[in-house]
C-alpha cells in the first residue's frame, strides 16, 4: 500500500476507488429487492442511525442558527433591512446549509460507526459466516443501512433546520428586538415549499445515499486488520465529505 502511494499517482488510485464505488453502488441497488425481506432490519437501522446523530444535529443546528441570526442581523441592519433576517436564514438553511451541514455531521457520526461496524464484521469473518449460512450480506447488512441513510437524512436535515430557525429567532427577536410578526410573515411570504423546501429534501436524500454508500463500501472492502478498519473509518469521513460537496455543486448548478 505505502509503496503504491510513493511511486504511483494518487489520482490513479482515486479514480480506481471511484470506479469501485460505482460498481459497489450497482451491487447495492441490485440487492435492494432482496433486502425487502429484512424490512425490520431496515427500520431498526433508520432508528439507529437517526437516533445516533440526533444530539449532534440538535446542538449544531441550534448554534448555527444563533450565529446566523447574529451575523445577518448585523449585516442587514447596514441596509436597514433587518426585517428579512428570518427570510435569509430560512432560504440559506433550506437550500444549502441544512442538507450540507447535516450530511457532514452525519458522515462524522453515523458514517464512521457504520464503517467500523461492517469493517469489524469483515475482520472477524462474520460476513463470511453469513455467506456460509446462505444469507447475502449485501442484502442483510449493506442495503438496510443504505436505505436507512436515504430515509434518515432528510428527517435529520428538517430537525437541523427547525433548530437553526429557532436559534436565529432567539437572537433576532428575543435578544435584538426584531418584531416577532415581521420575522415570521416575511419568512413565510418569501420561502416557497416546492423550490426551496423540497429542493433541500431531495438534496439531503441524495447526501444520505452518498454518505452511507461510502461508509458501507469502506467497511465492506476494508483490509481485515485493526489498522485497516482505522484507515477505512478515516477514509469514510474524507471521501463522503468531498463527494457530498461536489455533488451539492453539481445538483445546484444543473438540476435546481
Amino acid at each position: 500500500m505505502s509503496e503504491k502511494r510513493d511511486s504511483g499517482s494518487r489520482l490513479g488510485d482515486g479514480l480506481a476507488q471511484v470506479g469501485a464505488l460505482g460498481l459497489f453502488l450497482l451491487q447495492v441497488l441490485a440487492a435492494i429487492p432482496r433486502s425487502l425481506r429484512y424490512f425490520a432490519e431496515t427500520v431498526r437501522q433508520i432508528f439507529f442511525v437517526g437516533a445516533m446523530s440526533l444530539v449532534i444535529i440538535i446542538t449544531c443546528g441550534l448554534f448555527i442558527g444563533l450565529v446566523l441570526g447574529l451575523q445577518l442581523y448585523e449585516v442587514l441592519s447596514r441596509f436597514g433591512s433587518t426585517a428579512s433576517v428570518g427570510t435569509v436564514v430560512a432560504i440559506a438553511l433550506y437550500r444549502e446549509l441544512g442538507p450540507v451541514i447535516t450530511a457532514l455531521l452525519f458522515a462524522g457520526r453515523a458514517g464512521t460507526s457504520i464503517t467500523a461496524e461492517i469493517g469489524l464484521m469483515r475482520a472477524t469473518d462474520q460476513l463470511a459466516a453469513m455467506e456460509m449460512m446462505a444469507v447475502d450480506p449485501m442484502a442483510y447488512v449493506v442495503a438496510p443501512r443504505f436505505l436507512a441513510g436515504i430515509v434518515a437524512m432528510p428527517l435529520l436535515a428538517c430537525i437541523f433546520n427547525a433548530l437553526a430557525i429557532f436559534g436565529s429567532h432567539l437572537v433576532a427577536v428575543s435578544w435584538l428586538g426584531l418584531d416577532n410578526g415581521t420575522f415570521w410573515s416575511n419568512m413565510t411570504g418569501a420561502v416557497d415549499v416546492w423550490t426551496d423546501v423540497m429542493n433541500g429534501v431531495w438534496k439531503s436524500a441524495v447526501f444520505g445515499a452518498v454518505v452511507t454508500l461510502v461508509a458501507t463500501f469502506q467497511g465492506y472492502t476494508t483490509a481485515p486488520t485493526s489498522e485497516g478498519v482505522a484507515y477505512a473509518t478515516t477514509r469514510t469521513v474524507v471521501y463522503s465529505s468531498i463527494l457530498t460537496l461536489v455533488i451539492d455543486f453539481l445538483m445546484t448548478a444543473f438540476l435546481m
Binding site: L120, M121, T124, D125, Q126, A128, A129, M130, E131, M132, M133, A134, D136
Partner: peptide
C-alpha cells in the same frame, strides 16, 4: 450456490459468531 450452502454446516476456525 446459496441453495447448496443451505445444506452445508460450516464451523469457522475462529468461530465467527455474530457479535
Amino acid at each position: 450456490l446459496f441453495d447448496l450452502r443451505e445444506r452445508i454446516g460450516y464451523l469457522f476456525q475462529n468461530s465467527a459468531l455474530l457479535t
